[in-house]
């Protein structure tokens, strides 16, 4: 069984990001980068499936981006991925163009399952997995919080929805996107990270795949939201009413 885990390199949400003065994007050099947490959850799940099965499962991590993306792929290898592929690409991507590249990788690698984060924490799009499933005409199960094999070709997936947990059954091959409650990813140990530096990462050009990803969405402007509020503590309800009526003039 082959599991493909698309991963994305994203700025760490713990450190602040700085926006370029012209609003065209974030300051790349200043940001600390990590593997998208939702993708780490997907990878953890793939590794868990491999451990449960004992053998016969190959887990491949894939990333679409420039050479900087190799560091997150090495994290994936250190966590336990069998292989890592980088599709070399160094221009703007949107969920649509990412889905096209991933579809080409799927046609090449022929996985039984694509397991990926439901969204990336830099843009929160939550679209690429669904678009990929649509392009491949595969079943999809999004926002997964529990995955179980019914037989080797059918999965039961509990999905987190606004109304509670919904369980769907999908037949492989399928695209499953992962939500936060699915698992807690393991940390890559330092020895594993050191070993991963020597592991090969297969690099493919998007041209070799036959895709020229053209984003349909262009980011026009980025700006920091200015929060301009002042909190005031009041002594009691009477003071609150007084302030609302005579100062804020809203009642």
């Amino acid at each position: 069984m082959k599991i493909l885990v698309p991963t994305k390199r994203v700025p760490s949400t713990d450190e602040g990001v700085r926006i370029r003065p012209d609003g065209s994007g974030i300051e790349d050099a200043a940001a600390a980068y990590i593997i998208n947490p939702f993708d780490a959850i997907a990878l953890e799940e793939a590794l868990h499936i491999r451990e449960q099965r004992g053998s016969g499962v190959e887990v491949t991590a894939v990333a679409v981006g420039n050479a900087n993306f190799e560091s997150e792929l090495r994290t994936a290898l250190a966590m336990g991925a069998d292989r890592a592929i980088r599709v070399d690409f160094d221009a703007a991507l949107d969920p649509w163009s990412v889905a096209q590249v991933l579809a080409a990788i799927v046609r090449r690698e022929k996985p039984d399952l694509v397991l990926m984060g439901k969204q990336a924490v830099d843009d929160d799009s939550n679209q690429a997995g669904q678009m990929l499933a649509g392009l491949l005409d595969w079943p999809q199960a999004t926002f997964a919080s529990k995955i179980e094999f019914l037989e080797s070709v059918r999965l039961s997936v509990a999905r987190e929805t606004d109304r509670g947990l919904e369980t769907v059954i999908v037949r492989l091959p399928a695209v499953v996107t992962t939500d936060l409650r699915l698992n807690e990813p393991r940390y890559a140990s330092l020895p594993a990270l050191m070993k991963a530096k020597k592991r090969p990462i297969e690099t493919i050009s998007h041209r070799d795949l036959g895709v020229s990803p053209e984003p349909k969405v262009r980011i026009v402007h980025l700006e920091q939201v200015a929060i301009d509020r002042v909190c005031v503590r009041v002594a009691d309800a009477a003071e609150l009413v007084h302030r609302l009526r005579y100062e804020a003039k809203v009642i």
Partner: peptide, 13 residues
């Protein structure tokens, strides 16, 4: 923008 639409609309697109 609910989980219903987020699941389905990108695929429709």
């Amino acid at each position: 923008s609910t989980t219903f639409a987020k699941d389905i609309l990108p695929r429709a697109a």
